[in-house]
Design a protein around this nucleic acid. Structure first.
Lengths: 160, 160
DNA sequence: CAATAGGGTTGCATTACGAAACCAAATTAA
DNA sequence: TTAATTTGGTTTCGTAATGCAACCCTATTG
């Protein structure tokens, strides 16, 4: 049967995964953050099959993560650029990258080091924070009683 | 042909997606963060096919994101619990959730609100930060020249 | 002792993915 | 000016992954 979709799930993680939760989409967004904009370049950087790339780009455009821009005089040259929505995936990508670097260190050498353009310092480790800046773990948070989603659909009861 | 895998990619995002980048794995981890530990509960909460759930749980255990624990006297009752590695996905999940809440608001009602156990306040929006706490966008970071990965394999040149 | 719950496995139909070939418009090279 | 190349796709086809349902075995409950 068809792959299950979660467009109308009342879990926003599920809805998010619906848009960028497949093998390629996030990598495409990552490349876009690296500055890649052209079909051929995505294809070469990722080694993705062209038909799949077409499909993913179209879906990302549909979901307004990317925007397709005609460049060149008579059309026939396109660019795929990140929208604000797409750029907003930056924390997701960085969180994932840091997790990967920490728990699956690169087989050959140092992790990609990202630096603050302003002073050349490395960036901070991503963390869930309280309003006053404390770092929160899974156990430090909860869902208020009145907001606990009913079980059996997509969300379980308590966090922690 | 086989779905492309990225075990040995020198991009840590790709390696991370290799472990939790499919449709179900992150949702399973999310449920685990909600406190779900039993096979049947995962199955009911997610509505996932049982064989797929088996496969994903086994893979997550292999990758040390979950740990399988025998409970009950004579075996035959298992629990799947998050490891430190799994719990460390918290920032990833929260970043994804906040992105989903912002750009694909729940069709029926308010987003799941997570609160700080210590004072009942909501948590902060995830952000990539500089060492001194400034919020950084994609354009505020760069990769130092000597660390720029060669093009054509898995990473493009510059960030921004 | 029968019924049920927990945790899987097996078979089968449907769908998605990957590789390579093919295509057409627009550039560039000769 | 014609031929080759680049860009952005689509088509075809074989393989892999998914979902559903049915089945299995071991504990526990009634």
């Amino acid at each position: 049967m068809a792959r299950k979709r979660f467009d109308d799930s009342n879990c926003s993680v599920a809805r998010a995964l619906n848009e960028v939760g497949d093998w390629w989409s996030l990598l495409i967004v990552l490349q876009a953050m690296y500055g890649v904009r052209r079909f051929v370049d995505f294809q070469q950087e990722l080694g993705i099959a062209r038909n799949i790339l077409c499909d993913r780009l179209a879906r990302l455009v549909d979901n307004e993560v990317l925007q397709k821009v005609e460049v060149g005089e008579h059309g026939s040259r396109q660019e795929y650029r990140l929208t604000d929505k797409g750029r907003d995936l930056f924390p997701v990508v960085i969180a994932l990258r840091q997790w990967g670097d920490k728990w699956n260190p690169s087989p050959d050498g140092a992790p990609l080091n990202l630096r603050d353009r302003e002073n050349g310092q490395p960036i901070r480790a991503m963390a869930v924070q309280s309003m006053d800046g404390r770092e929160l773990t899974v156990r430090d948070v909860y869902v208020p009683e009145e907001d606990v989603p009913e079980t059996g659909s997509q969300n379980a009861g308590s966090v922690g």
